[in-house]
Structures are given as C-alpha cells and as structure tokens.
Nucleic acid binder design. Sequence first.
DNA 1: ATTATATGAAACCATTTGGTTTCGTGTCAA
DNA 2: TTGACACGAAACCAAATGGTTTCATATAAT
Lengths: 124, 124
Amino acid sequence: MAIPSQKHDVFQAIADPTRRHLLQLLGDQEMPVTVISGHFPMSRTAVSKHLRILAEAGLVKERKVGRETRYRLEAEPLMELKRWLSYYERYWENKLNVLKRFVEQDDDAAELTFTPLEVVDPEK
Amino acid sequence: MAIPSQKHDVFQAIADPTRRHLLQLLGDQEMPVTVISGHFPMSRTAVSKHLRILAEAGLVKERKVGRETRYRLEAEPLMELKRWLSYYERYWENKLNVLKRFVEQDDDAAELTFTPLEVVDPEK
DNA sequence: ATTATATGAAACCATTTGGTTTCGTGTCAA
DNA sequence: TTGACACGAAACCAAATGGTTTCATATAAT
C-alpha cells in the first residue's frame, strides 16, 4: 500500500471539532451530504468541504447513488494515530507507576525510576 | 480535576508536525529553549511559540532554572486522545473481521455483520 | 419537456496560523 | 559594573483555514 502523499493527514483532519463530529455521525450509517449537513449549524457547502478534507485523509469514503453522494466512516487510517499514541503510553504509565510507588510509601526508592525503552520514531 | 478551558486542545496541539517533533524530543529529557530550538530549522521565537501551544494543551511543563526555561514532556493529556480513539477501534476491528471472514471463504455469510455496540459520545 | 433536487466548483472574506525581526528584561560571568 | 546570554513580548506578514454566497451540472420527478 503506497502512501498517496495526501495534502491533509489524519492529525490535521481530526484537529477540527466539526470534523470529529462528522466522523461520529458517519460511524452509524452512510449518509448523503444534505442529510449530514442538517446536523450542523453551517451551510451544506461548508460541511461538504470538511467531508473532502476527511476523504483526503482517508477517514471517509464516498459513493455516488443517483444524484446524491453518500459518505461513510473509514476508520482504518486512525491506526496511524493509535501507533503514534502507543509510543507515548509508556510515559503516562511511568507517571502512574511513580504515583503508585508514592502511595505505597516505598521509601527506599529515593530517585524515580525511568524506564529507558527502545528509541523509536513515533512518526513512523 | 476541573478542566481549565484552555485555548488550545490536545487535538489541535498535535496537528502540527513541528509540535509532534517537539514532544518526541522532550520525552527523553528536560531541555532549555535554546537547546530545543537548535533541533529545528526555524527561529528560537517560533519554537518558543510552539512550546507555548503545547503548554496550553498541558502536553509540556516548564520550569525556570536561573536564566533559562526548561521544558519537559507531560504525556498525561494524551489519555484524552486514547479515549477518543478507543471509541473508533471497533470500526477497524470490524473491518478486520470482515476481511478475515472473506479470507476464510465463509460463503453463507452473504451480508456483512455490523456490530451495533453501545452509543457513546467519543468526545466525552 | 420542464421543474425540482443534490451536489461541487468558484470567488470571496475574516480570522487563525506559523513564521519573521526587533526590542526589553532578568540573570550569570568577567 | 559591564557585557553576554536566555528568553518572552510585540509588531508585522504571508498563507492556510473555516466559513459564506452564487453559479453550473447532473439526475429525478411531473
């Protein structure tokens, strides 16, 4: 699967609250643009542009049915986000460990243990 | 923990590649601004502004040491992202299930099974 | 054939964003 | 005390963003 060097990436796509709302809405069912835009306090055209950005990020697929265009969620690209996130999980897990140690009054651990795991690039 | 109604949220903060790079850099160690900005092809002031945005999202903490300001990663706010993401996991898991079924040539499943789980708001 | 509906494209606009340079201030070093 | 260093604030700028309205086109319905 070659990356199509899209203009908008997943991180940018989900940055906007309206677009996150769109994803939520389209999770449940495929919908044509007019119906979708009925859920938002803005013009149909504006919603349409948000849908385009989501489509460019691969988060949404469109299908032409007669004179309407129906959109549906495509969650797969969110895996990239999950992967990115997983890199940072150890940091807050470490934080929780520190807290746990504190609560347990483990006094002989004077300095905080820091788990230096493998050095990875969270972007790839 | 009351939400301090910050101007920049986590979704916005991580949308920018430079800021994601900053998080990566600051994961390993606390660093003063000048050292940090040495890793980026832009002015110290520009980096400083990115750091401010990250700080507003709670993703970074600053500490004054003499004449320098040192920054370090604070991963905890990423949990919000994880929570948001987890809502969508079932969608791509479902996708994988469909694929698996296809590979297994399970012909008597003519229509795709769609698991309608609980309706939750991924934003909260 | 004509009219109504669904949509995208285009032009436009205000605000935000990501960057710059310049300047002021606090702190360390000689 | 006099520089030099570390930094943020401010003013500024071009481009991107999120929205609008208007127009053109394809399809459906009468």
